Simulated scan of single mutants.
Amino acid sequence: MAHLCLSDVSVHFGGLQALTEVNFDLRPGEIVSLIGPNGAGKTTIFNVITGVYRISGGAVSYDGQTISGLRPHHILARGIARTFQNIRLFTAMTALENVMVARHCRSRAGVVGAILRTRRQRTEERDVRDRAMAALSFAGLGEFAHAVAKNLPYGLQRRLEIARALGSDPKTILLDEPAAGLNPSESRELMAMIQRIAASGVNVLLVEHDMSVVMNVSHRVVVLDHGVCICQGTPEEVRSNPAVIEAYLGSEVD
């Protein structure tokens, strides 16, 4: 059974058809990339999966259960985390504090426990800190744990956002253009990190315009154009597909 599955998913906003009967799945430990021209519907799919947008037709299932219609925090609690095109860190907080925030969906002590500083709350707080540090170390940011987020270089802020998503202990992570603005060296470090995430058993859904990243890390690639899936397959199959070439480069005009 597929870990995450989109079945005939359609989304429309009034008269605008954003997605039309999109089908694909994401299996455990797999890296799947969504590619396509601007406006193809890639971020719309992320918003559908994470409960930001309601679908107009079809279904999204996860671990064999329908998650279409659930609210974003319920979807996060089920193990689906994401990043965003534009960095959305708590800029005045430290790197460690940013990742600790992600653990809220796993916390159980509650407000009363926090006020009274119960034993359970103190134990949970230590666990949150330890797991946040582990996520930072995984992202190669351990030495920056106490640095204020806004003072980190851009490339490290990108990695911190991924570390924060990992801090929620996801089984699936959605990365929205994580290589945007990175130099070649930073892109190589990002590719290695994405591969480590998948090797740890977390499946990765990636939206990315940097084709060197897509072709080097993806097990499969799904190509969208105007909200329609026009091709899916291995990077090699997609690279040579005429429909993909036309979507990106246009057809020859006499």
Results as ranks from 00 to 15, higher is better:
Lys150Ala: 12
Ala247His: 00
His226Gly: 01
Leu156Glu: 08
Glu237His: 02
His219Ala: 06
Leu160Glu: 02
Thr91Trp: 14
His209Val: 05
Ala114Glu: 15
Thr83Met: 00
Val112Thr: 14
Ser185Arg: 15
Ala192Ile: 07
Ala77His: 05
Pro178Ala: 04
Cys105Arg: 12
Met1Phe: 03
Ser33Thr: 02
Asn216Cys: 12
Gly64Ser: 04
Gly233Thr: 06
Asp127Tyr: 12
Asp176Met: 10
Ser33Cys: 09
Val202Pro: 11
Asp8Ser: 07
Asn151Gly: 07
Asp63Glu: 12
Ile31Thr: 05
Glu186His: 11
Val101Pro: 09
Gly227Cys: 00
Glu124Arg: 09
Asn38Trp: 10
Leu70Pro: 02
Val22Pro: 05
Val221Gly: 04
Ala59Ser: 15
Glu189Gln: 12
Gly29Ser: 02
Ile31Ser: 03
Tyr154Gly: 06
Ser187Tyr: 15
Gly233Asp: 02
Val214Gly: 00
Ser56Tyr: 05
Ala192Leu: 12
Thr20Arg: 12
Thr66Met: 09
Arg188His: 14
Ile49Trp: 14
Ser218Met: 00
Ala179His: 11
Ser7Asn: 08
Asp8Lys: 07
Gly250Cys: 01
Ala192Thr: 15
Leu166His: 06
Val207Thr: 06
Gly167Thr: 03
Val9Leu: 01
Arg106Lys: 13
Phe46Asn: 12
Asp8Ala: 01
Glu124Gln: 12
Met211Ile: 11
Phe13Gly: 04
Thr91Tyr: 15
Leu116Tyr: 08
Gly41Ala: 11
Met93Glu: 07
Pro72Thr: 07
Ala95Tyr: 03
Glu208Asp: 03
Gly51Asn: 14
Arg88Lys: 07
Pro72Gln: 11
Gly69Ala: 04
Thr50Asn: 07
Ala139Gly: 07
Glu177Ala: 03
Arg108His: 13
Val99Leu: 01
Asn216Pro: 02
